[in-house]
Amino acid sequence: MSTPILEVNNLQVSFKMFAGEVQAVRGVSFTLNKGEVLAIVGESGCGKSVTAQTIMRLVPTPPSYIKGGTAVFDGKHEITTMKESEMQKIRGEEMGMIFQDPMTSLNPTMTVGEQIVEGIRKHQGGSRLKARNRAIELLSMVGMSNPAERLRQYPHQLSGGMRQRVMIAIALACNPKLLIADEPTTALDVTIQAQIMELLQQIQEQTGTSIILITHDLGVVAEMAHRIIVMYAGKVVEEGNVNEIFYDSKHPYTWGLLRSVPRLDSDAHSELASIPGTPPDLFAPPKGCAFAARCPYAMEVCLNKDPEHFRVSDSHSAACWLLHPDAPKVERPVEVGGRTHG
């Protein structure tokens, strides 16, 4: 359980635009162990998707480029410097990816079968028939009825949830060691979301693959993830296991995220909580803590100096000056995990 499959160290990714450089990912580090489910959480534009797609080198270059840092996959592949031809051997074979919108991520002019089979044939060769049988096996594994018939269908004949199942089948085609799910449920109905999450969890238990689950919804990850990384403005602000993040989080941004998860037991008159303000402009990131402008506990130091990660426990750390021994003690607000009364 503790052999790392992926070690990301100080990864920096920027986009070169006419107006300047957008620093989408500004030094992200994390380790993913074999068989582990790691969730990356944060609001839109915090760099979580860019981080994930950089691990598969799917971000178009230009305009993006890897400015610094390393990402070592399976102890031997240094992804940030790999050639495209070498990446092609790893993609699909050792890592698979599920995208956000199943309505647009399947090719409309190819049958579901062709789209599953082409990856299998590319990496494992073998006869058309063998690949087809594998595709049928995959489709039944992701819970599709009549898999042999589904192979001949086109994406537009399937519902959103079914398409996402097909996407999962494509990603799993070659038994990858790492599965990256980039907001796999965001574009789906709530009931379907639950089914897809359940499916991912089931697959994880069956195959023991490592999963990086990217989402902006903490509710989605609670049941499935082992560890959670909270990202803000291109940086990791807090990292810990599920219990530490849900019950003992230390970063005010994590508190804000937890507070914005809607709950069933809140009364009808309470308002949905949100974090006031907007994320900083990544053309020119602030000098101090990127969250300081929106943080109710911001101190002088927060505006001037970016906080280091402070260790809370072996598995838990947060980048916030409140954790400094000299900082005033701030109690974790009681209403975290619920709603504020408005």
Binding site: N107, E118, K122
Partner: peptide, 17 residues
């Protein structure tokens, strides 16, 4: 720029393919 091209790429297909 379509998503399905990214999907195709994520399968490890060659550029020509």
């Amino acid at each position: 720029n379509q998503d399905y091209i990214k999907t195709a790429k994520s399968k490890g297909l060659s550029t020509a393919n």
